[in-house]
Simulated scan of single mutants.
Amino acid sequence: MEMIEEDLVNVRPFAYAMSLIDGKWKVLILFWLWKKEILRYGELKRALGTITHKMLSGQLKELEKDDLVIRKEYPQVPPKVEYKLSQKGQTLMPVLQTLCTWGTDHMDDK
């Protein structure tokens, strides 16, 4: 039986990492939490611009479920909710830093 190249490459770690940050908004959410450390829901929504409430809420729930973001709710009226990177989320920041560096180096390539 002939072995194809895909059999020699373990794609699972890459696929797992990408599954945690896939989509248009997750990396941007992580970026803003990295830069600002703690953001309230409304601040995050303003920073992201055109994101809908439903999309932001869903993306934050997924990031929290995957232990990349910590949600802290304060028992007050009106409700106050803050988000920050978890320890696991912090470990992704060197990857974002590398992407930022790459972007800076290649922005003017056009």
Rank of each mutant, 00 (worst) to 15 (best):
91 T>F: 04
39 L>Y: 05
105 D>A: 08
35 K>P: 02
80 K>W: 09
3 M>S: 01
30 L>R: 03
53 H>W: 10
88 K>Y: 12
30 L>M: 11
76 Q>I: 09
23 G>M: 04
5 E>G: 03
11 V>H: 09
63 L>P: 06
86 S>R: 04
79 P>L: 09
56 L>S: 07
56 L>W: 05
59 Q>V: 03
91 T>R: 13
1 M>A: 15
44 L>T: 10
65 K>C: 02
71 R>Q: 11
45 K>T: 06
1 M>Y: 12
59 Q>K: 13
27 V>E: 07
78 P>D: 00
52 T>D: 02
14 F>L: 15
60 L>C: 13
102 W>S: 00
47 A>M: 04
14 F>N: 06
81 V>T: 15
31 F>R: 11
64 E>L: 00
82 E>D: 10
87 Q>W: 02
5 E>I: 14
106 H>V: 06
44 L>W: 03
53 H>F: 15
102 W>Y: 14
45 K>W: 10
27 V>R: 13
23 G>R: 12
37 E>L: 09
8 L>W: 13
74 Y>P: 00
84 K>E: 06
51 I>K: 02
11 V>C: 07
52 T>C: 01
82 E>T: 12
9 V>M: 08
110 K>L: 04
61 K>N: 13
11 V>E: 07
50 T>Y: 05
28 L>Y: 07
58 G>K: 08
65 K>R: 09
6 E>H: 04
22 D>G: 02
83 Y>M: 13
89 G>A: 07
83 Y>N: 03
19 S>V: 13
110 K>W: 07
70 I>F: 02
91 T>Y: 05
103 G>H: 12
33 L>P: 01
46 R>A: 15
21 I>T: 08
51 I>S: 01
99 L>Y: 05
7 D>E: 12
62 E>Y: 05
69 V>W: 03
20 L>T: 01
6 E>R: 11
91 T>S: 13
78 P>M: 05
24 K>V: 15
21 I>G: 03
100 C>P: 00
44 L>Q: 08
104 T>V: 06
66 D>S: 10
17 A>W: 09
48 L>G: 04
16 Y>A: 10
56 L>C: 00
89 G>T: 06
27 V>N: 02
34 W>K: 08
12 R>P: 04
100 C>M: 12
98 T>P: 00
67 D>R: 14
10 N>I: 12
95 V>N: 05
3 M>V: 13
71 R>K: 15
23 G>D: 02
90 Q>M: 07
6 E>K: 13
20 L>S: 06
83 Y>H: 06
51 I>C: 08
106 H>R: 06
77 V>P: 03
46 R>M: 14
15 A>D: 10
19 S>A: 11
64 E>D: 07
91 T>A: 09
87 Q>K: 10
73 E>Y: 00
97 Q>V: 10
55 M>F: 01
81 V>I: 15
108 D>M: 15
51 I>G: 07
101 T>H: 03
59 Q>I: 01
60 L>R: 01
60 L>G: 09
49 G>T: 01
96 L>I: 11
108 D>C: 01
102 W>V: 14
78 P>H: 13
66 D>A: 14
56 L>M: 04
80 K>L: 12
82 E>W: 08
88 K>C: 01
53 H>D: 11
42 G>A: 12
97 Q>E: 04
18 M>D: 14
93 M>F: 04
43 E>F: 03
92 L>H: 06
11 V>R: 15
29 I>D: 05
90 Q>W: 06
44 L>Y: 06
106 H>L: 08
24 K>G: 02
73 E>R: 05
65 K>V: 07
89 G>Y: 06
33 L>M: 09
